[in-house]
Nucleic acid binder design. Structure first.
Lengths: 346, 346
DNA sequence: GCGTCGGATATGAACGTTCAAACGATCTTC
DNA sequence: GAAGATCGTTTGAACGTTCATATCCGACGC
């Protein structure tokens, strides 16, 4: 292959032991089981560790102990229409949560020509990671089936099937949208539309179901509009149809902030004033919506709570072998802003 | 600590050797130096490897060979005003480029209370990664100084100091902005303003310098407006001052798409039509600008090219010990859209 | 005073791989 | 036909840690 630079050798457990006048194992214990050491020994050893800047070699540790302290996160493709992952700050939250637990995040993606399952298998077989954190899980997600069959630890943002480990965390999207519909209803709106992106995505289905439950509960006239594609052009086209047809809705509950951007664009073009002529709510609270005028009423995802819960569950599987008996559902946080219009507007 | 599940033992080199009827080392060579094997042996061994699904244990390999096949990427905080990193798809490109080279990306961030340098040291001392990929490098970035002193491999998106390894890649922001000014000048604009975010960020300085060079070259009246903060409120406030003062510019060259969003917002409120009353150009080509009406003229960063070049340089340092003699400057790609206005508008 | 216990530390082995060197067989060379 | 040179393969050792077990030492019970 290639010429390799001479390997600079670091401080080893042997070096520390020699300086501290104790054995290897005592150094190891000082780091992994400090309670076993006499307090004075611990103090002395810690001082030497600090002084020499000793850090156990991660590879050697992993080889012997079988634990990698690394979690793999299969990065979803950064699709704006699917802001759960990178864009929404979820990755941020995951890195923070796992870092606090002493784990690091390995970002993985199938190589060209490789299936998702093959990519997982490679990491499992090479014993590169201790577990997986999945997001954007689909109904019958092949990754879940694969990991379940392999008996490999994972935690999922999004529900798993009943016969799979219930190591998942999800947002109560349906309830959050019901709340949105409630807010719209309280302001006197009767004709309400739900704007959904191309379906099949479980979270979008949940939001739509919440909408349907909401209109039923409040006795509203609710219709669901699905946009065939995900790009701005299609969203705008579908939204224009919705807003220029007869029996135009007075309120739009969008399945995502991204869709609400389309509503703003069309409303502006059609001379409809949001918050007055048209109430708009959305979902996700993406940073970009800070630019919208009037500000957008939406649902904020508790990303840090989700990430913490996921890491906590994953580490319980990895470290204690305990698989959660049930999934965890966290509430979304309604963020009420002027796009909803004033109370009793109509 | 905690009860640990019995470690399931994987397929080892020993197992493959036994089945294939050769020695350990031959298996190792089949994977790492296939040219050393007789073709028929290679074929037989490969078949057995495939059959047993053997993958070398990453930890054992790392321990012995000293190579981790992992690159650390210190994740910048996901600040919308700084869209170089997560939001702009750079991370995507990095994962793809390193994956193709057989490396994985470890996302790291200092733990609470830990300095950036300490976080780097920890990874170096624990021999967790082979090198670092840095983005959002500042002038006199302490991370660069630290890694240089430690003699540890890195590559940087953004220029390094002259006394540091020239293992950097950067975009020719200045030239790209000069081009933008040229486009504006060609359309007859004379009073042009540059909108910058809170300064001190090298790439923003480069863009501003490009603007100044551009107005000088074309003999325009150019002024630079710096926004004190990074959040939408401040950007809008500064932009409003700019657009309502006397001698209002007829063209705005924004230092970033994020700033251009402010221009659109203010222009709309002030009744100025973009592309007619006001020409607007920007920088970054963020996905969100797809929503702007009229579409935004901007500069696209060649993120995949940047990532590929960075990985290539980093691996040359890691694998061959060769440090690049000079940095690499890639051009930005002007993307001309209607916000610029028609040719010879004035 | 002797055996027993328990806490603290030490020792040998093992994790699974690749390195460095050795080995045997075949091919050159004169 | 002997002395290398080359090729393909094998062997012993080493990477740096933690596991499992052994050892040491003082305290305690009877």
């Amino acid at each position: 292959m290639a010429a390799r630079r001479p390997r600079e050798r670091g401080v080893t457990v042997e070096d520390v032991a020699r300086v501290a006048g104790v054995s290897r194992q005592t150094i190891s214990n000082a780091l992994n089981a400090p309670h076993r050491l006499k307090p004075e020994t611990l103090e002395r050893v810690s001082a030497v560790i600090e002084e020499l800047g000793y850090r156990p070699d991660q590879s050697a540790r992993s080889l012997r102990s079988g634990t990698r302290r690394i979690i793999a996160y299969p990065a979803p493709v950064d699709d704006p229409a699917n802001p759960n992952a990178l864009m929404g700050g979820f990755l941020e939250a995951v890195v923070a949560a796992s870092g606090e637990a002493g784990y690091r995040v390995l970002l993985v993606r199938p190589r060209p020509g490789q299936s998702q399952e093959q990519a997982l298998d490679e990491l499992i077989a090479a014993r590169t990671v201790d577990g997986f954190l999945l997001s954007d899980v689909l109904r019958d997600d092949p990754r879940l089936a694969h990991l379940t069959q392999a008996g490999f630890p994972f935690a999922a943002f999004g529900r798993t099937a009943p016969d799979q480990p219930q190591s998942w965390v999800d947002v109560d999207s349906a309830q959050a949208v019901i709340d949105m519909v409630g807010l719209v209803a309280a302001r006197g709106h009767r004709r309400v539309a739900f704007l959904a992106s191309s379906s099949g995505l479980p979270w979008m289905d949940d939001r739509r179901d919440g909408f349907l439950a909401g209109v039923r509960r409040h006795g509203l006239a609710g219709q669901v509009y699905s946009v065939p594609g995900d790009d701005p052009g299609e969203i705008i086209k579908a939204t224009r149809e919705l807003l220029t047809g007869r029996d135009r809705p007075t309120a739009i509950v969008a399945g995502g902030d991204w869709l609400a951007l389309g509503v703003y664009t069309v409303a502006r073009a059609e001379g409809l004033e949001i918050g007055t002529d048209l109430a708009v709510t959305a979902f996700d609270d993406l940073p970009v919506t800070a630019w919208l005028q009037p500000a957008l009423t939406t649902v904020r995802l508790p990303l840090h709570g989700i990430a913490k819960a996921l890491i906590s569950r994953l580490l319980q599987i990895i470290e204690d072998g305990v698989t959660p008996r049930a999934g965890l559902v966290l509430p979304g946080e309604p963020v009420i802003r002027p796009s909803l219009g004033p109370p009793h507007a109509l």
